[in-house]
């Protein structure tokens, strides 16, 4: 019942549906990349500097004759994988710490929040660059670096939600009926604080994809994984002669980030029961 309400509210937001369609298309592209474009995207497929719509390369080829379309399809894998896993990791760290800080308050809260501030005082991107540079670029270190720089806002959000919810009467009722702290945190408060967390997590996937692209652009990507950021970074020197080499991966990033933002907004509408009900 709740589920169908959710869908009705989500579908009512046309932008969100469009975003979801784009996102599904990108996921399909990523999952079936090796079906659509068999072979290694790093291999030379055709002559270098082929413009788009040429015979062997729909979106053209790069300076080494690699197929741009194949690069984009395989890059989608890397981008989505890194975006999702790093967000999941950030959620795990951020929500846990935020929930503990918000629920217990007092000294626990002080300690956790000072720790969080420590991370917030260092600029995100610089910290990510430093971390990846120290631990040599690989998918794992990139995911870890992105997660480490992006959990503090989630922790703050979860803490704010928990702080306000724990004083609510239904939580006090749970205390007076003898429910344990973990039950109260997981069953009473967490489900009620989830909406804003899910929404900001969906936006965070977009930010993580941008971070990964930026790292790859600087040459700090995983050397074995084709990624959109790497493609743009490699093509930047020839952008005036061969615009397609950077424009198509750029478009892929824009579309993905846009789709994620649209979906995030749709989630926001659908997960806010008051808004959903007043419209229905």
């Amino acid at each position: 019942m709740i589920k169908s309400d959710f869908w009705r509210a989500f579908v009512r937001n046309k932008g969100a549906v469009l975003g979801l369609v784009i996102l599904v298309a990108i996921v399909v592209l990523a999952v079936f990349a090796s079906v659509f474009f068999p072979g290694d995207p790093w291999e030379m497929a055709t002559a270098p500097f082929q413009p788009p719509l040429s015979e062997d390369a729909l979106l053209g080829s790069d300076m080494l004759g690699r197929d741009i379309a194949s690069g984009i399809a395989h890059g989608a894998r890397v981008s989505l994988l890194i975006g999702l896993t790093s967000t999941a990791a950030a959620l795990a760290i951020g929500v846990t710490l935020g929930a503990l800080a918000g629920f217990h308050g007092g000294k626990v809260d002080d300690a956790i929040m000072r720790f969080t501030e420590l991370f917030q005082t260092i600029p995100n991107f610089v910290l990510a660059v430093v971390l990846v540079a120290i631990f040599t670029p690989s998918l794992t270190t990139i995911v870890a670096a992105i997660a480490i720089v992006s959990w503090p806002p989630l922790a703050r959000l979860a803490r704010a939600e928990f702080l306000s919810l724990r004083t609510r009467e239904f939580v006090q009722a749970a205390i007076t009926t003898g429910q344990s702290n973990s039950t109260i945190i997981l069953r009473q408060i967490l489900p009620n604080s989830l909406s804003p967390i899910i929404v900001s997590a969906s936006l965070m996937v977009a930010t993580a994809i941008l971070l990964e692209s930026s790292l790859s652009f600087l040459g700090l990507g995983d050397p074995n994984a084709m990624s959109w950021g790497y493609m743009i970074g490699a093509a930047r020197t020839v952008i005036r002669q061969a615009w397609w080499m950077s424009v198509f991966p750029g478009l892929a990033i824009v579309l993905t980030v846009l789709a994620l933002n649209l979906v995030g907004e749709g989630l926001n509408d659908a997960l806010n029961p008051k808004l959903a009900r007043s419209r229905g």
Binding site: E169, F170, Q172, A173, T176
Partner: peptide
Amino acid sequence: VQMVFQDPYASLNPR
């Protein structure tokens, strides 16, 4: 010892 709360809108978990 049990309690009945003031605000009927805040004292029940909406979910």
